[in-house]
Design a protein around this nucleic acid. Structure first.
Lengths: 213, 213
DNA sequence: TCAATAAGGAACAAATCTGTTCACTAAGAT
DNA sequence: ATCTTAGTGAACAGATTTGTTCCTTATTGA
């Protein structure tokens, strides 16, 4: 019963081991970032508490102390203001329709291409298995942009730039949907892609002055 | 060395065990169907040879004899003419633009809603991890429909129903992308959804006669 | 300076998955 | 009727994951 194990204590650290020891928020943030990185790489089903822990430079124990399931951890990471998507979505409305559309969709494209934005892709197909996660993405990422876009359309319609019949939820969803699909399809959405979507699809679709051709 | 185990032989079947024993194609088909069903339920990362085998009413051995990895099996199941998507895509072109658009996108929507179509959802987000699977989906499901849709546009443009500038790959991709996103978003795409997409988005976008309003 | 707290890091049993092997037997061919 | 092929169902060792527990020690605040 004597515990004469070869257990290595925290003192004799192997070469390369971290010297500082984070706690509280600093550690939580590191775990959030590790979670989103893992999510982007291995997908939701591939998440392992162990992997996340060592990626964050800590042990499983610290994780289990805070969250009990991967879904819980992912939800927390997604909604965190600094690691996740808590406090974004600041796109100016200049009043120039095309400019505003490009800015809004470009913002969405960039968000999706950011390191933690890539974490969203695996979740988009998880609606049936994890409705609460999917709902979170809708609420935090897609909904605000569609609402904003609808406001743009309405304002432009009031100025006479957009035909009134084009101010609908479905039409407001076309741009974001095209960007998201392009993101899943090609893996990256460039500024040129965004402009092409606006010029080839959105403007002809909504413009009050009929397209030539 | 006497194998005096409690092993149960295939003869003394437990209640409910299958009496017939399938081989060759019949068994392969059952495995394909089980694979696509599992895919729809647990996603690609959740696939287990064991689960697929028992869902198909057989053992792992029969599976390993044919395929060595889940990806290989999924690829085979997807491209199989009868269990997968090998021999579909028969949509008539009547020459009536709106009718043809509704038929084509309706066909896509129904394909996605079929039992084995639901298997596609998890794969759509696997582009980075399994490019060959995603490519397969593009080739078998999306590409043919976009090509067909482009042909529709061109023919309609020749008749003067569609403005020539609208005959582009990007515009041909709008309909399918909207349907796929709607499928991922809502889980089901109804006939009414398809008509709304055609009437609210596609027709105004491509029509040679400018929309009123 | 010192005590309370919690992180780091490893061990651990239980559960699960992997890929193979085996004895048995149903199905199809000769 | 008999032979050959291949499906069934189980067992198995090895690997991996899961949650927990334990000891040591860095950090923080009193």
């Amino acid at each position: 019963m004597s515990s004469s194990s070869t257990r290595r204590t925290a003192g004799d650290a192997a070469p390369g081991t971290r010297q500082t020891r984070r706690r509280g928020d600093a550690l939580t943030q590191a775990v959030y970032r590790a979670t989103l990185d893992e999510l982007a790489e291995v997908g939701f089903e591939g998440l392992r508490f162990d992997k996340i822990a060592s990626r964050a430079g800590t042990g499983k124990a610290a994780l289990y102390r805070r969250w009990s399931t991967p879904a819980e951890l992912v939800m927390a990471a997604l909604t965190d203001p600094s690691a996740g998507f808590g406090g974004e979505m600041t796109v100016p409305a200049t009043g120039a329709l095309r400019t505003d559309l490009v800015a809004l969709l470009g913002n969405l494209a960039r968000t999706l291409d950011e390191p933690h934005g890539r974490a969203l892709r695996p979740l988009l197909s998880q609606r049936s298995r994890h409705p609460e996660l999917y709902a979170q993405i809708r609420t935090v990422i897609l909904k605000p942009r569609q609402a904003f876009l609808r406001d743009l359309l309405r304002a432009a319609a009031d100025r006479g730039e957009v035909r009134p019949a084009a101010v609908t939820d479905r039409i407001a969803s076309v741009g974001p949907k095209m960007v998201v699909m392009e993101h899943m399809d090609a893996g990256v959405v460039t500024a040129a892609d965004v402009e092409a979507i606006v010029d080839e699809v959105l403007m002809p679709l909504i413009s009050a002055t009929p397209p030539t051709g």
